[in-house]
Each structure stands twice: as C-alpha cells, then as structure tokens.
Design a binder for these strands. Structure first.
Lengths: 230, 230
DNA sequence: CGACCATTTGATATGGATCAAGCGATGTGG
DNA sequence: CCACATCGCTTGATCCATATCAAATGGTCG
C-alpha cells in the first residue's frame, strides 16, 4: 500500500540485531566533563529503527560511527526525511515528551545513547551542560531552517544545496562517498528519485560535479553549485 | 528588480517611527520571577523592520500586541516567511551570534525587547530560566519541523494546514481575522498569491470554510481540513 | 469620485511527478 | 563458474499541479 518501496524492504536476519538500551553510565566525581561521558555505546544494523515517532523521548543520541536518518511517514505513504546525522552529530533533541520523527540507521552504526533525565539533572547543577544543550538545540533549529530554504527551491537548487551540505560536513573535502540512497535524498529534498537522478546527471553534464560511481560524488565546480543554491 | 511587490512598498512617515532599543530593565531582588520582567516594551509600526538578517542577535523578543513575521530574501528576489508570531510568542531565538532571518511588524505591534546577555546571565544562576529558554527553543524547533511537513504537501493541504494552525493559535475558535496578506500566506507556504487565493475559494466552494471578507476566515468543517492536512 | 492596492479569476506554460522500460552491479543457486 | 533474479539507479514519454501572465473586481483613503 505504501508508495515507498524502501519501507517494504525485507529485514535480513543481520538487520535484526538490536540490543536493549543500557542504563546510562554515570561517571561520579568528575561529572562536569562532557555530555559524551554519560552515554553508553550501542550498535544498530543497516535499516534498523533506533526509535519510533511517538515513542517516549527518554534518550538523546550521538552518532559515533555510520549515518542515521530521521523521518516521518505522511498519511499518503510518502516519507519525509528530517535530517541525516553523521559521526559527531547529536539527534533526538525533540522538545516534547515524545519523538516527532522516527530514527533509523542508514548504515551499520554505533550510537551513544544518553539518558535524558540524567542529562537534565546534570544541567540543573552544571550550567555549562545547560548551555551546551541549548546550543545544540539552537544549531538543530538553524539546520531545520536551512532545510526549509532548500525545500522552496527548484530541483537543481535543492540537489546543489544538498551536495554542498554533505561535502561541507565531510570535512569540507570536495569528494564524498554518500551513505544514503537516491530514495533517501529524494525524501530529504521533497523530490522523486527520478528527479534526483536526472538532476545529478544534468550537473554532471554541466561539469559541476563528477560521478565516478553513483554514491561517489566529486565537486568539480563549487562556485557553480553555490550560484545555483543561493 | 524584485519579484515581490510587497518589498517595494513605500514606507509612510508613520511607518518610520522606530525607537532606539532601550537597555533592559533589571528588577533586582526578585529576579527569578520570569523572563518577561526583563524586557522593555517597544512599538513598531506596520511593515517596520524589527531586526535584519545578519544583524547581531543581542536581543530576544516577545510579542505583546500585534503580529510579527520573520523572513529571508532569496537571491532570485523571492521571500520565504519563516514564521508568524502572535501575542505571547517569543521570537529571535537564533542559535548563532547573528539573526538568520529578518523580522518585521505585520500590524502595528508592541514587542518586549529582552537583552540576551542579561537573560543568559540570569539563566546561569537560575536554572528554571535555563529550562524555560531550552523549552522555548525546543518548541520553536517543533514548529519549524511542522513547517517542513507543510512545505512538501499539495496546495490544498498547505492552505488547510495553515488555517488549522492559525485557528488553533487563536484560542481554538473556528473563526479568525487574519492579520497577514495573501502574499504573506503565499510566502509562508511556498506558493504564489494566485494559488493561495484559488485554493481558498475552492475550500469555500467545498463548504470547508467561509470567507465573509478576505481576511476573515470561518472554519465550517474542521474535519475536512484535517483530513486534507494529514 | 478617482487612485491605489489587495484580491480574485481566467488563460496558458512548465517543472517535476508519474508511468514505464532498460541497465549495471551484486548475490544466489544450479 | 555461469545463468538468473534482485536491487539501485538511470533514462524516456506523458501528464498534471502550480507558476506565470493578464485582466477584472472590490475595498479603502484622500
């Protein structure tokens, strides 16, 4: 019934390896150190759910290895991807008690799982933690606002903006191995997979990028892309 | 050169009344009270800028009376409205040092202007203030994410979603006087003014809403609108 | 009343969606 | 090791929702 074939993927036995959530480790004594110390690492296989929309938002997450997507399914079966999270990124910063999006591992991933209650308790005593939390949420807000600006542009502009975003996040190199599929990109940009594919070949033909393989992108002309984007 | 006629509006002499920003008042002694106590009220006439994109984000704002829009101008002259703020709403919660959007009064408005440095200093001592700040930012994040979901839908769904949002915010009554123009709505929803207008008449013809006057909206069938929306 | 501005309505154009088919890489069973 | 199924991606043909261009209507203010 769902339009999106990705969602109907049969989960392989490997994919099902999903641990239970460990209790957050508390490093007594030196607590002001850093948010990371409070988390417990967990492994998630490709396409495995980390949390679901509507679940209690009791944990915060930090990507250690791999890539994570957050998404929402619309009533008509379409999927909107809210964000891609790369190593070092935190996600699950929902405001309310419940997650507004679902989260899945795009590749096999290691994620630090941090108990929210422990974090807010710590923030109450240590205001550098509170400040970090606020800064993270603010950065997330800026990211989503940027996403909005992408969504009102033409297909070329969206794809160009996406490529610039990804390469900027990949240490600013002008060569990236994309961890996500065309369908993921399409659902992030509010386009179809066909339009994303066509647009990439257009960009390749206009010498703005090179595509040694479908997931491997080389920026040949950052200026041209930036001109497209804004 | 700009496509958007709103931007070329001649500012009347009345419109130019724009005060300088007052220093935040500090209510010594009982400081934990509330964020509002730290603000100084200011008046802004219709269409007057409150702050500009790229300016230092030294202040936070709370709408007392009237309506405010935040927006960004794209390189092609189009305008994207980020949000409408009604009495009680806070705005200017940018993460970085600079405002990512500009802000303008849609109607003559009274706005509480709060010095950010005073607020963060207070938050450092009073963690209920820190919590409030985080909660506000989180709510803003949720709002922007909701906006994204609007932007990927059809014109009918976007307009229906907009109307539901506005009526929900207007104390849940099913009758509102919209403070913003069709152009504002169009720029919020990523549509043209013509499409917004046509969609509203469609909704009127299908008995979902009534339009006693162009700014006065009556919801006749919330269910139908919600079904459209999601 | 007349000018101006916001809104509506009409006619046409177009960018991206949809429907459909082909292609290349990867993996599996014979 | 090859034949074949599967999957992700690309390419082609057509359709449709919304943009664009244009004009009419209505409301407000001097």
């Amino acid at each position: 019934m769902l339009k999106n074939p990705v969602l109907q993927k049969v989960i392989s036995s490997e994919d099902v390896e999903r641990g239970t959530r460990p209790a957050a480790q508390f490093v007594s004594g030196r607590l002001g150190d850093s948010i990371e110390l409070m988390g417990a690492p967990m492994q998630f296989a490709r396409n495995v759910e980390i949390y679901g929309e509507g679940e209690q938002a009791d944990y915060l997450y930090k990507v250690v290895k791999g890539t994570v997507r957050t998404y929402k399914i619309l009533n008509d079966g379409r999927r909107q991807i809210g964000a891609f999270y790369l190593p070092g990124d935190m996600f699950g910063l929902e405001s309310g008690a419940e997650h507004a999006f679902s989260a899945e591992a795009i590749t096999n991933a290691t994620v630090l799982v941090i108990r929210r209650s422990a974090l807010t308790a710590l923030a109450a005593r240590d205001n550098s933690v509170a400040r970090q939390l606020l800064a993270m949420t603010g950065r997330e807000l800026a990211r989503v606002q940027n996403h909005i600006m992408l969504l009102i542009q033409t297909a070329q502009e969206r794809v160009a903006g996406f490529l610039l975003e990804m390469t900027d996040r990949a240490q600013g190199r002008d060569e990236v191995e994309l961890p996500m599929s065309r369908q993921d990109i399409a659902d992030y940009l509010g386009l179809t997979i066909e339009t994303v594919s066509r647009t990439l070949t257009q960009l390749e033909n206009s010498a703005a990028i090179a595509l040694p393989s479908s997931r491997h992108i080389v920026l040949r002309n950052r200026g041209a892309l930036r001109r497209l984007n804004s």
